[in-house]
Every structure is written in C-alpha cells, then in structure tokens.
Design a protein around this nucleic acid. Structure first.
Lengths: 202, 202
DNA sequence: GACTTTGTAGGACAAGCATCCTATTTTTTT
DNA sequence: AAAAAAATAGGATGCTTGTCCTACAAAGTC
C-alpha cells in the first residue's frame, strides 16, 4: 500500500469523529474501529492523541485554504465571494444542525481543556478572518475591513450555534437573508459591485 | 449542618467546573476535591453524574430567570433592558475570555455527546429568547419580535465565541457598540423610548 | 435511652483509557 | 535471494473513570 495511505485514513477518521463527538470524547479505539486497524498500529503512525489532533488541524487548515481559493475563483466580485461564505451555513446545514460549526466547536473545546493546540486551532478562524478582510478591503472599506470581517465571522458563528441548539433551519435561512441584505447595503453605500467584476489571481 | 448544605456545595462546585472545564472533562474526583468530601458521600446525594448535571442546569435556569427579572426592574424601558443583556459580554468578560459563553458551550458540548439533558440545557437559551422577544414586542415589533430576539441572541453568542478564541476585548467592545447602535436605530424607526419609560411588574 | 433515618467515609470493582512493548508480517532495498 | 526497514497485530500495563458496597457516625424520633 501507499506509504501514507493508512496515516491519511486515520487523520480522516479522526477529523470526522473529532467533529461529531468532540476531541476528548473520541478514543483511540473509536478511530481504530473506523479505520479497521489495531491499536498498536496506531502508535506507529502517531505517538500520541495530541499528535493526531495536530494532524487533523493541519488538514483542516489546508482544506479551508483551498475552499477560500475556490470561492475566490468562483465569485467574480468580493460581494459574491462573501456570499459564498455566508451560504456555507445552508450548504453544511445537515452537519451543523447536529454538530455545530466545526471551527467554533473545536476552538471552544480546546479552550476549556486549556490544550496546547488551542492556538493552532484558532488559525482556522484566522484564515477566514484574513480572507474576509481582504474582500472588504476590495470593497473599499480600508480601515473598517478587519472589523467587518470579524463581524461576519461572529454573526455566522452565532447563527451556527443557535441553529444547532434550536435545530431550526427556518431561522438560519432568515439570518442568512439578513446577512445578505446587510452585505447588499454595505455595497450600495460604497457604490461597489461594478468595479470588482474581475480580479486577477495566480 | 443544614439538610441540603452539602448538596448545594456539590452543585455549586459542579456548576463552576462544568463551565470552566466542560462537563465530560470534569470528574467526580474533581468535584469531590473542591467540596472536600469523599467519593462515597457523593452517591448519597446524587445517583449519577447525569443527575448532577440536571441539578446544575436547574440552578442555571433559576439564576438566569432571576437575572432577567432583575434587568426588568432595573431597566426602565425595553431598550435599556436589552442593553443590559448586551452588556453582559463586557460584565462577564473575565470569564468569557477564558471559558466562553456558559450557555452556548454547554449546549454545544451536550449536542456532540448526544446527551439526554441537551434539551434541558437549551431551555436557558429559551429563557433569554422569550425575554428578549417580549422586550421587542413592547418596542412594537409584533411579528418580528421573535426573529429579532434570535438575532440578538446569535449575535452575542458569536461575539462570545470569537472573543474567546481571539482573546480580544477591543473587538468585543466594538461589537457591543455596534449592537447598541443597531438597537438605537431600531428604536428610532419605531419612535419608541418614550412610551415605555415605566412598565408595571408584580 | 433505644431506634430509625440521614450523612459520611473509604475500600472494591469492572470498564475504558492512552500508552508501551514485543512478535510477526509485509514491503522495500540491495 | 538476503538484509533492512516499515507496517501491523495484539497482549500487557498502569491510570482514571463512574459506580457500588459496607461500615461507621451523627441526628432526629419515639
């Protein structure tokens, strides 16, 4: 088999289980059962549970980065790109309704555990933050761009948490609509949407 | 000693530890150490860990209800009362920055554990929801009141999560200001703030 | 003052956990 | 084909967990 095939399977299974059950509530046996390998084999690939967590966070960082690049290509204007971000609440609703936001829930869990990988997990938030900030910068909100990025970030985060708690997609739809309306107003005030039809990449 | 003194101590310690460490990461030994009683004594007061959780949630429900009643007395207008809610982000910042929102973090943890007390924990959210809804109703937003309540709820929830992740009080201050501005605008549009100076209670 | 209830202590237990270790198989290198 | 390296399996270990059990102390009741 390929050199990293098993390792990759482990990370994939751990990624999924950490999201659905939480980091602490997921045991080695749980992951081993999914991947169908022995516990011993585990320690050939990862020396500790924390090491798996680091690997999981690493793949999440890469996956997120890729997603942001994709949105950058798909969305012609900054506004459309931000809308891609907002819509993720509905795109991933099937998971969010049961397990919440994968980024936020991991960060809050690690914060409570005072885990050493806490900062690393927060970097996923940072990726979104920086990306959103750039979109708002392109929309002409120089100084406010970071504040607006954080605003969108926390707004969506709250909607994920409450949507999960109340299991109410209708409410999520409403909030998504509100966010899009808000974004519309933001763009109108700055008379954007025409100037940013095309943005060069690569 | 009083009949329920020890029991109350247990609940109090568990309440604190569940918040700071999370429910699952808190063991019987942890609680027993704080209260300074033996493990055995524990089972005289609570048959299981889940039973303690239920008791903790119960006290949180009561404490929340009392806080809402207090705000109702302190705040002359619905607007001022909602502001009391918003300001809690700053009032409790010392805890939130390290452990997040006590309501949200418990609900998300129990959701991942698929715990039977999940719904009970969600009721704390419901208390805030109903209370906020009433304030917005008083402000004249009949049909929209519930949607606005949920909006405030998720907004603050997101700010707590992101504030915790980034450990950034300046950002929290900005968002609190934004929420107050937003509330101002809401009241101005409905020409409120004068009609609701005094509201009878009890 | 005897008796029942309530509170407290701490040992015992089985299960689950992360981790380590050794032996065996598979793959790669030479 | 021989030797070295990597991958795998599964038993052993020691710790922690929630839970149970029995023994004793305190308090209240008749």
């Amino acid at each position: 088999m390929a050199l990293r095939a098993t390792r990759q399977q482990i990370v994939q299974a751990a990624d999924d289980l950490f999201y659905r059950q939480g980091f602490e509530h997921t045991s080695f046996a749980d992951i081993a059962k999914v991947v169908n390998i022995s516990r011993g084999n585990f320690y050939h690939h990862f020396k500790s549970k924390d090491e798996i967590l680091d690997a999981v966070i690493e793949t999440r960082l890469q996956r997120t980065q890729q997603m942001l690049l994709d949105w950058e290509e798909e969305g012609a204007s900054p506004k459309e790109r931000i809308e891609s971000y907002i819509r993720i609440l509905l795109t991933n609703w099937a998971m969010i309704k049961d397990y919440g936001c994968p980024v936020g829930t991991l960060c809050t869990e690690l914060a409570k555990l005072d885990h050493s990988s806490k900062e690393q997990a927060n970097k996923v938030f940072s990726l979104f933050r920086i990306w959103l900030r750039q979109q708002f910068t392109l929309l002409g909100y120089g100084d406010e761009a970071d504040g607006l990025a954080m605003h969108v970030l926390s707004w969506s985060q709250g909607v994920a948490t409450l949507g999960n708690a109340f299991n109410d997609i209708e409410y999520v739809r409403q909030e998504v609509a509100k966010m899009c309306d808000w974004l519309d107003a933001m763009c109108r005030h700055n008379k954007c949407g025409k100037k940013f039809k095309q943005k060069k990449r690569q």
